[in-house]
Design a protein around this nucleic acid. Structure first.
Lengths: 374, 374
DNA sequence: ATCAAAACTTGAACCGGTTCAATATCGGTT
DNA sequence: AACCGATATTGAACCGGTTCAAGTTTTGAT
């Protein structure tokens, strides 16, 4: 029973934890998953001392510290973070997003991972696919794994998820969507303003019939953009006609809705896509319909697609400061972990219009100007 | 001491685990993080019974099962998966990729997460940024968290990472890159064949001077593509000139290398980009240089960018079956978790050329054909 | 009614790192 | 040599879900 631990009486014995292919002489060097007790035995110290070395507590004498470090190196010891987090913090942050295939969320994750990696954290990402019930279950899985905190990009109805987070007192930062719920920190774009500014710009170019395309009207981010849309449209003289269509960009229905809009009495002269996926679908549909931009219609997309600058003509976008959003959200969460009772904050960042050639005065204006010789 | 647990003598007492805002009467219903022992006490059964209910073991009588389930519901009990994994499996799978901002890796993650979510697993993703040393540290973090298995998209030199995985006997599946190391399962495209077929097609169009653009020659995936490139070029008559340039697509140097290639004695008539990021950069550079495709030069990209079909003219690509790769990798890993001693397998999938307008006969051929009246 | 087999229940020990009260060691004084 | 405070070390209890040997109840056949 050479492999049994220090004197402790044990009831259930594990099989010898020796890596495959090791002969008995090497056994001590090839324990498959050495523990603090293995290290302690090898260094001839107590487990508490090993733990103190692990955590860099200066209370340990240099001599013992060296012995312990040598033992760790000899055994190839890697601390078991699962055991560590059973007591204290897990140093895992949960991230819940609708999807990752969108460059926007992928970039968020990448920034979070970089920040986490530098600070001894790991990211556990789950996907809600935009479904509140799935969001609840996935966030439940996160809190069940003792994550120290959660970064949530919510669905259109995150109420039960938020209640769960509060009930389990898991610190959370809400990104993108801003809810009424005062119990959380928020990091988001001022979407109302971003949309208002963008639409004001579009109207300023002479457009009087706009079409805004969204995937899901129920999202608070979309609602705030619609508010901004209406504010800008309502302030314009002469009146501006604004329509909103909702649909899945991967669906044929979307193309039919667009054709229908063009066939209407007041066809839109400017199309605004609410995200990259919609913009991609839209550009494909317009190409198939042989509609050119900006000649026939102006285009603008939120959530800058990577290809915006290389389609021809290039696509004007409202650019979100993704990295900054991620950094703010992370630092908010870290602050909250340190001081859980501080009042929640709402951090608002600005998105900026990047004008490109897809945005131009509408066709009739061009005709008018030509006719007037201007 | 109403909040103290069943008889067990305890040395250190925790503060009462009652959610904020609860008064004493509600306390029993608002334990912040109820444990099996809380559930057991409330249901009037032993902890072992609660555990059996949790794990759906049919050994528990219907009466007790009901009582326990009621107690769980009343208390809002969520099992602590950290504690569960201290004993047995963690039901966490580690995923190590170079980045996520690439649509390819984002799509992999998305597919893995969907599979994981349906089978009671969570994904913990870490990024290597293509650096072997960072890869080692991040995978070390994963095994330190007791992940049941690892899916690794390796850097150019994953040797120490692979050794770590073997030493800690953590099952792993290697995706994309295929190494000599026989200790692991592999899921990858047959890149040599994919490249050979693609280049054969390009040569068949009449191209005799090709330029292949890669980010990192040291990657095994790139080396196998280069082999395929050379095989196809070597088999052609008359001889085909093939050049390879390596560079960071976000770097100016890349544009200069391309100009230089065009200024050379045998300028390339077909450009092959090894991934989406390079393709994006390339298209931007060509637009800036006012080089048109396929008129001036043919284009082909590996790793289909989302925008391939909407640039004009559309970009020909070699399409990878991303979902299938992910599904195969996942099922391989699940199989290995069940039977760790089974012989490792190598699964090879096929990529397919999607010919689009960016791929056409080279300019001089067109002139030749015209001159010959063909 | 009797009893053995089958079905169910119990709870202490366990996983591995951390904590902290108790104990041991050391340097410096008198 | 005796004593004291400071510093270092120890190890049992702990986190919470799981396990299984031992104990209890039920079932069913006699």
């Amino acid at each position: 029973m050479a492999w049994q631990r220090n004197g402790r009486p044990r009831k259930h014995f594990r099989r010898p934890r020796v890596a495959q292919g090791a002969n008995e002489d090497q056994a001590v060097n090839l324990i498959e998953k050495p523990t603090v007790r293995d290290v302690a035995r090898r260094a001839g110290v107590a487990v508490g001392t090993v733990s103190n070395v692990l955590n860099g507590r200066s209370i340990v004498s240099a001599k013992r510290r060296t012995k312990v470090e040598k033992a760790m190196a000899d055994l190839g010891y890697v601390p078991n973070r699962v055991a560590q987090s059973l007591r204290g913090e897990s140093h895992v942050i949960g991230l819940c997003t609708p999807v990752t295939s969108s460059a926007y969320f992928a970039m968020l994750l990448e920034t979070f991972e970089r920040l986490a990696s530098g600070q001894g954290y790991e990211i556990m990402q789950v996907l809600s696919h935009g479904d509140p019930a799935l969001e609840f279950r996935r966030v439940e899985a996160l809190v069940g794994r003792n994550v120290d905190g959660v970064i949530l990009i919510p669905t259109y109805d995150p109420q039960s998820t938020l209640d769960l987070l509060v009930q389990r007192s898991t610190p959370a930062v809400i990104v993108d969507q801003v809810m009424r719920d005062r119990r959380f920190d928020y990091v988001a774009i001022d979407d109302r303003k971003a949309m208002r500014d963008a639409i004001t710009h579009v109207i300023g170019l002479g457009h009087r019939s706009l079409l805004y395309m969204v995937r899901d009207k129920r999202l608070s981010i979309v609602q705030r953009r619609i508010e901004g849309f209406k504010q800008a449209a309502g302030a314009a003289r002469p009146a501006v006609a604004g329509a909103i269509i909702q649909g899945d960009p991967d669906d044929d229905l979307f193309a039919r809705q667009i054709s229908k809009a063009f066939a209407s009495r007041h066809p839109p002269t400017a199309l605004i896509a609410s995200n990259s996926a919609i913009a991609l679908s839209l550009v494909g549909i317009l190409q198939a319909m042989n509609v050119r931009w900006p000649d026939d219609v102006s285009l603008l997309a939120f959530d800058e697609p990577v290809w915006a600058a290389i389609v021809s003509p290039p696509l004007a976008v409202v650019r979100h400061p993704i990295q900054q959003i991620a950094i703010e959200a992370w630092s908010r969460l870290m602050t909250r972990l340190r001081s859980p009772d501080e009042n929640p904050k709402r951090i608002t960042l600005d998105a900026h219009l990047v004008a490109r050639r897809s945005l131009a005065p509408p066709p009739y204006t061009q005709r008018d100007s030509k006719a007037a010789g201007v």
